[in-house]
């Protein structure tokens, strides 16, 4: 699988030395279809991308896998509440473990394998050097609960939603690289409640339509959509919980360093039905390119600039871009060709 060639030397977890290879840049999920942006229910079938594309497989594994998992382990040690489940969610947890193990072993057989003999399962993760024999359905046969166990080995953030009363409830999840929200606070909220702070979208009926769509997602047809924001510095953990640590980075952006510091952060949100609990999984797979990396594709640079120029002020403020939006637009100016 060409897209999972991992560097011989492990890259550092964060900071300027952490780079995207040209292959990673080429397969970046650039989110803008037009020159302006508004919230919409932009769902498309998941896992149907071209070979080596970010959505070739349902769950994408890329060159940052090991680094991201090490970062997750560090974050969970400092703050175990980043992986949390309400008591009724155990079936959803097992559904998640089964889904990830099945997909990873099918789609990346060089890195992962799964052997099953009834409920006796044998899982191998060669990237993290893990061998595990356990009994599916028996929590005591794993070192920790199933969601924590498997998400410590799975790229992206993972939200398990219970589907009941025609609504979706944020009842479990592992969230170590969110874009400015807090799982611990939002735990237990309904779909509209946890999307409460998002401006404009409610009035536009976006969430009502989204829920109608989510209600009908069938187990054999997962869906995906793209979301985006700007992050300063190559910082994965931008949760509300740590805002006091990364918020001040926004003050350090200058016209000279904005090309290196400002990152287009894209979330690939994958929504498969969970098999036995009938819940819905919400995977948030995060990709980041600095403006410099992004501008190696001039068409992307031009489009991003136009999107930033036309972005409604409420959305700009909600995404936290007020301090450096103009600097980004200026830095991208050479890519505007008037066409």
């Amino acid at each position: 699988m060409t897209n999972t060639k991992l560097p011989a030397v492990e890259p550092p977890l964060m900071g300027d030395a952490f780079e995207n290879s040209p292959a990673a840049i080429a397969r970046f999920p650039f989110p803008f279809l037009g020159d302006s942006y508004m919230y919409s229910v932009n769902l498309t079938p998941a896992g149907k991308g071209a070979p080596a594309a970010y959505d070739e497989h349902l769950f994408d594994v890329d060159e940052h896998y090991v680094a991201e998992m090490k970062l997750r382990a560090l974050i969970l040690e400092k703050d175990p509440d980043r992986c949390i489940a309400l008591p009724h969610m155990m079936e959803h947890q097992w559904d998640l473990l089964e889904l990830i193990m099945e997909k990873y072993s099918q789609d990346y057989p060089e890195h992962f394998s799964l052997e099953r003999d009834g409920d006796d399962w044998h899982w191998s993760n060669r990237l993290l050097d893990i061998e595990e024999r356990f009994v599916f359905g028996d929590v005591s046969s794993l070192p920790c609960e199933p969601m924590e166990y498997i998400t410590r080995q799975a790229q992206g953030d993972w939200i398990l939603m219970d589907h009941r009363e025609g609504d979706f409830w944020l009842d479990a999840g592992t969230l170590t690289l969110p874009a400015d929200w807090s799982l611990r606070f939002d735990l237990g909220m309904s779909f509209d409640e946890w999307h409460g702070p998002v401006p404009l979208a409610h009035e536009a009926g976006v969430f009502k339509r989204a829920k109608q769509f989510l209600n009908r997602i069938r187990p054999d047809e997962p869906w995906q959509r793209l979301n985006w924001t700007i992050t300063i510095g190559r910082r994965w953990d931008t949760s509300s919980d740590t805002y006091h640590e990364w918020g001040p980075d926004r003050l350090t952006v200058t016209p000279e360093n904005v090309g290196k510091k400002a990152h287009l952060r894209v979330e690939l949100q994958v929504l498969p039905r969970l098999a036995r609990s009938n819940g819905l999984l919400f995977q948030i797979r995060t990709y980041m390119l600095s403006l410099e990396e992004l501008s190696t594709n001039p068409a992307w640079a031009k489009r991003l600039r136009r999107v930033l120029q036309t972005l409604p002020p409420e959305i700009s403020a909600y995404k936290g871009m007020t301090l450096y939006r103009e600097m980004m637009i200026d830095w991208l100016e050479p890519f505007e060709d008037g066409i």
Partner: peptide, 8 residues
């Protein structure tokens, strides 16, 4: 066969 939830 795909796993299923009770009531399917």
């Amino acid at each position: 066969l795909p796993s299923f939830s009770a009531g399917s």
